[in-house]
Write a protein that binds this DNA or RNA. Structure first.
Lengths: 245, 245
DNA sequence: TTTTTACCAGCGGTCTGACCAGTTGCAGGC
DNA sequence: GCCTGCAACTGGTCAGACCGCTGGTAAAAA
């Protein structure tokens, strides 16, 4: 097996246990392009010999990869490379992290990173179709301001459409990893905040400003507007605590 | 909530295998509120008896839950619900991104997104230790400019230290997820190949400017400097093709 | 009396070897 | 040529044994 990649953590560290060895093995070969969608892994009895671990330990690792969608394990046939599904883990995050407000704030920082960069790129590459989709999402957003569930979903859809307009698969994937948490956060926020006409019109205007900057194709201005929008949102989130005192 | 079977099928059907029995058991009890974040599961020897399956089968199921971050399994102590942090998405993200046909430029856009946001945050939260570490990495970078291998690694270490100075788990996790993608394309090593004194001093100055802005604690300036640095790098990468014609 | 050390039970991590169930390919019979 | 049965290969599971880690308790030392 050729290992021409320069040292990364993956290679520098011994996996902590047997199952992690399998995961590291598959990861390495995937990154090296040696494994592609549909490829079959060596049989379990062979692979556990190759990796120097027992078959039950190997199976633990395979199960982990299976639950991520990366492996499709079929009895009597073998284990095949599938398409990893990041939303599986995103959904689990809703359960584990949604009540951890520090963690959610941290995830929102990643959101800002992604959206700010995405909108910069979108200013250059967005098609008419992308712009039409965003405009439509903006209208849905305006139409659902009084309904936390629909409003949260519409707000999220607007933002997702912005990221998609970047046509950057890496940014989109990263966004999808945290998407369930973001959606949950949108909806929760609306539930907890009583609608206030001033706040509402502020938010609508902020969304419009973002869209206008994108349509005008000015990356710096678009970046500034999206950050401004997030800053307003963050201020509104924090001011909620003042009201309850 | 995630499972290998869809939510409605889960209650209607016997799980297809032993590991799925555990997943269904944990899932059911979570949804019923009988298990909460931090709760401990029965010991493996007890639980496999309860579920009527063997311990290796049980461990497969526990591993699946663990990789999703829904379980925190600790040797000698037991298996606890939740307690995961965002870094649990790391492997899944690597797998997903590895399977996409990302152009290097696309991955670099994600890198810019993360570093720009990270350095903004770092301006606010970086400790003296972080700054010292970055400074040290900068010196290593300057000292290794004549060696593409070590220079690439030192450059990377500098950037990683910047991201770490943000103390944002999410950004750090995402950065680590794109690391292998960048490394497999040897993008940093290529850029530093065939050093030219003018180019070199340009690069060194760009790195220093980034660090100075961070030390000065000016988020906008730091963001601008890091983007500038990437722009210079991009230009150098592209100019390499002219030389070879 | 308090602190330190050693021991042990219970915990997860792993292995071996045997057996069960599903899939596939090939040979033989019709 | 088609069908059937069998063997080999595949994953799924089990039982029992052992290893390493953790935390609590009892005993020894200060």
């Amino acid at each position: 097996m050729v290992n021409e990649a320069s040292p990364s953590e993956d290679n520098a560290e011994t996996p902590p246990d047997g199952a992690a060895k399998v995961i590291a093995y598959v990861r390495r070969r995937l990154l090296a392009g040696e494994l592609k969608l549909g490829d079959k892994l060596p049989a379990e009895r062979e692979l556990c010999g190759l990796l120097g671990i027992s078959r039950p330990s190997l199976r633990e690792g395979l199960r982990a990869l299976s639950v991520l969608g990366l492996l499709d394990v079929q009895q009597g046939r073998g284990a095949f490379i599938g398409r990893a599904d990041i939303s599986v883990i995103g959904d689990a995050l809703v359960f584990t992290l949604a009540q951890e407000s520090n963690a959610v704030e941290d995830v929102l920082q990643a959101r800002i990173a992604i959206e700010a960069q995405a909108i910069r790129i979108a200013c250059r590459v967005a098609t008419d179709q992308h712009l039409a989709a965003i405009n439509e999402k903006l209208e849905h957003f305006v139409d659902s301001l009084n309904d936390p569930e629909r409003g949260g979903a519409a707000d999220h859809a607007f933002h997702l459409a912005l990221v998609e307009a970047s046509q950057s698969s890496t940014l989109i994937t990263m966004y999808r990893a945290i998407e369930p948490l973001l959606l949950r956060s949108h909806v929760e926020r609306r539930r907890l905040a009583a609608p206030d006409p001033d706040v509402t019109s502020y938010l609508v205007q902020a969304h419009k400003d973002v869209f206008v900057a994108l349509v005008n194709g000015d990356p710096e201005e678009a970046d500034r507007r999206i950050r401004e929008h997030f800053e307003i949102s963050a201020r509104l989130r924090r001011s909620r605590f003042l009201k309850s005192i």
